[in-house]
Computed example of a mutant assay.
Amino acid sequence: MTDNAAVSRFLPDEEATLALGAEWAQSLAAPLVVYLQGDLGAGKTTFTRGLLRGLRHEGAVKSPTYAIVESYPFDGFTLHHFDLYRFSMPEEWEDAGLDDLFGADCVCLIEWPQQGGEFTPAADITVSLEHAGEGRRFTAAAHTDKGRKSLEAWLN
């Protein structure tokens, strides 16, 4: 896989989106920053829910739209799920103290990363979900060596 290689799949329904997230969870390792991009209702939180189920999280998985971040501790790392949709200006990133949640033992999934502007840490991987007919198109692209290694581990 080259540094900018992308993985793409058609997901016919919500169950396929959940299953894909659970599949990727088996090879997920910290540290990693993943941007989740797509329109409202494209499946970003559904994908995250599948990923968390694949990590054996049994509780509720809700969109962090109002809380900004939901954190899930696991053996070896913590997964932080951010949703910056409600940010009205990028400086809210600093006001919320979100930098404190990034580290060597964290996997960070960030919905609406553009809302944090230059404060949002760079992505190792961008996951895009787009409506496609009755389903959605999933695309994951690596931007760093960590991202490439993560996608390679998942595909192998």
Score class of each variant (00 low, 15 high):
58 E>W: 09
129 L>N: 04
90 P>I: 07
151 L>F: 04
62 K>W: 02
18 L>C: 02
146 K>H: 11
59 G>Y: 02
136 R>P: 01
40 L>T: 05
125 I>V: 15
11 L>M: 10
64 P>G: 01
113 P>F: 12
23 E>L: 12
46 T>N: 06
42 A>W: 03
12 P>T: 06
111 E>Q: 14
90 P>K: 10
79 L>I: 03
153 A>M: 08
5 A>L: 09
129 L>R: 05
136 R>K: 11
125 I>D: 03
148 R>L: 11
122 A>T: 14
41 G>D: 07
113 P>H: 15
19 A>N: 13
32 L>F: 09
126 T>I: 13
132 A>E: 15
83 D>T: 12
139 T>D: 03
25 A>I: 14
61 V>W: 02
63 S>C: 10
153 A>N: 12
147 G>C: 02
94 E>I: 09
60 A>M: 09
19 A>L: 12
133 G>Y: 11
50 G>I: 01
115 Q>E: 07
110 I>Q: 04
6 A>Y: 01
2 T>W: 00
123 A>C: 15
129 L>A: 06
38 G>W: 02
77 F>I: 11
18 L>M: 06
65 T>M: 00
87 F>D: 06
59 G>I: 02
60 A>H: 08
3 D>C: 03
86 R>N: 02
54 G>H: 10
66 Y>E: 09
76 G>T: 10
25 A>H: 14
147 G>H: 00
45 T>F: 04
95 D>K: 10
151 L>N: 04
83 D>M: 07
121 P>H: 15
20 L>S: 05
102 F>P: 05
93 W>C: 03
85 Y>N: 02
